[in-house]
Amino acid sequence: MVDISEEEFEAYVDAAIASVPEALLDLVENCILVIEDDPPADMPSLLGLYQGVPLDRRGHYYSGVLPDRILIFRRPLVRMCATVEELQEQVRITVVHEIAHFFGIDDARLHELGYA
């Protein structure tokens, strides 16, 4: 387990977002990223979660909806990592994984790409 402040964790998430190519980030719209301490009680080991309508499923009817959400769960990530470097890498993988879900990429493909 790595002992870091909430501010340091947030900086790791910011760095992970900055690692995503700008051309892709420019396509992310109506989506917010939120850091929460813990995942839902029925999924205690969950590291991140995408909630919304993936970009590839949005049609002409998609308007006037609340923003999609990407949730990053701090405590499970901190618990699973032994070093700061490991945590930074796992945060990056988790953030990219959830952004990929925004684009409609499923877990099977993410596993093939090394993001699962």
Rank of each mutant, 00 (worst) to 15 (best):
I72E: 07
L110Y: 05
L46H: 01
C31E: 03
D107C: 04
T83M: 07
H97G: 09
A108T: 13
I99K: 04
E7G: 10
G114N: 11
R58I: 12
E22S: 06
C81L: 11
Q88H: 08
E36S: 04
H111P: 14
H60K: 11
I70D: 11
S19F: 05
D37R: 00
L25E: 09
I70M: 08
V28Q: 01
L27G: 05
I32Y: 11
G59M: 01
D14M: 14
A100V: 11
P21G: 10
I72M: 07
A116Q: 13
V13S: 08
G59P: 03
R92L: 14
S5E: 05
Y12E: 15
E85M: 03
E112W: 07
A23N: 08
H101D: 12
L49Q: 01
P54Y: 00
A16N: 06
P39N: 03
P40A: 02
D42T: 05
C81W: 09
V96H: 09
D37P: 02
V53M: 04
L25H: 02
L77D: 11
E85Y: 00
L110A: 07
V2A: 03
H60M: 14
I32E: 13
G114D: 13
A82T: 12
N30E: 03
A41W: 14
T83D: 05
D107N: 01
Y12K: 06
R92K: 10
S63P: 15
I93Y: 09
L87V: 04
L55S: 09
V78Q: 08
D26T: 02
P76H: 12
V20P: 06
P76Y: 13
V91H: 02
A11L: 15
L110F: 07
D3E: 08
A15F: 15
D107Q: 02
V28C: 02
D38Y: 03
E36K: 01
I17A: 06
E7C: 10
R69F: 15
I93A: 09
Y50Q: 02
R74D: 10
M43C: 13
D56T: 08
R92N: 13
R75Q: 15
P39C: 04
L49I: 06
L46F: 08
R92M: 14
L66P: 14
R79E: 15
L49N: 01
H60S: 13
L24E: 06
C81K: 04
V84S: 10
T94L: 12
L110C: 08
P40W: 01
S5P: 06
E89F: 04
G48K: 00
Y62I: 02
T94M: 11
D26H: 02
R109M: 12
E29Y: 01
C31F: 07
E86M: 00
F103S: 06
Y115W: 14
E29K: 00
N30Q: 01
V34W: 06
I70S: 09
G52F: 00
E7T: 10
G64I: 10
A15W: 15
F73V: 12
A116P: 15
Q90W: 10
S5Q: 04
V2E: 07
L49Y: 02
H97K: 01
I93R: 06
Y62L: 01
L66H: 12
Q90G: 13
